[in-house]
């Protein structure tokens, strides 16, 4: 099976490392981006099977990322998961209205993250 490709956007180095280690261990091909702007430009250059994004980020926040991807040309129906500590309904509502596919509240469990990613990318269950 071709490795599923994930774009993980987070300004926290720890979270980037955490997410990418977890997903790489699970057999995903992970690319990271350090803020929203970096994420969107990376997204435009490459085709990903799913995007995980933080909300609070410099330059362009997670809402901006969702809007940019959904409003863009290429691969705009990619599943976008929001990974954030924000747990308020307003935030979720806003993200969903912009087109987020799902919402994961930090801290997440490795297994959960992997399972969700497998589901949304259609990767084999492991």
């Amino acid at each position: 099976m071709t490795e599923k490709t994930i774009l993980a956007i987070d300004d926290s180095r720890t979270i980037r490392q955490l997410v990418s280690q977890t997903l790489v261990d699970a057999g995903f091909d992970v690319t990271t981006a350090v803020d929203g702007e970096d994420g969107v430009s990376t997204f435009q250059n490459t085709r990903f099977d799913a995007v995980i994004t933080d909300i609070n980020m410099p330059k362009l926040d997670g809402f901006g990322v969702i809007a940019a991807i959904r409003g863009g040309e290429a691969n705009r129906k990619v599943p976008i998961l929001v990974l954030t500590t924000e747990n308020s309904n307003d935030f979720k509502e806003k993200a969903r209205n912009l087109g987020a596919t799902g919402w994961i509240v930090k801290p997440f469990e490795d297994r959960q993250l992997v399972d969700i990613l497998k589901l949304v990318t259609g990767a084999e269950k492991g």
């Binding site: 747990n87 509240v105 469990e109 969700i116 949304v120």
Partner: peptide, 18 residues
């Protein structure tokens, strides 16, 4: 009131993870 911040790993999923 905002919902209380829940520390325990809480996940609202688009899809229940079986």
């Amino acid at each position: 009131p905002e919902p209380d911040f829940v520390f325990a790993p809480v996940t609202l999923l688009p899809i229940e993870v079986p």
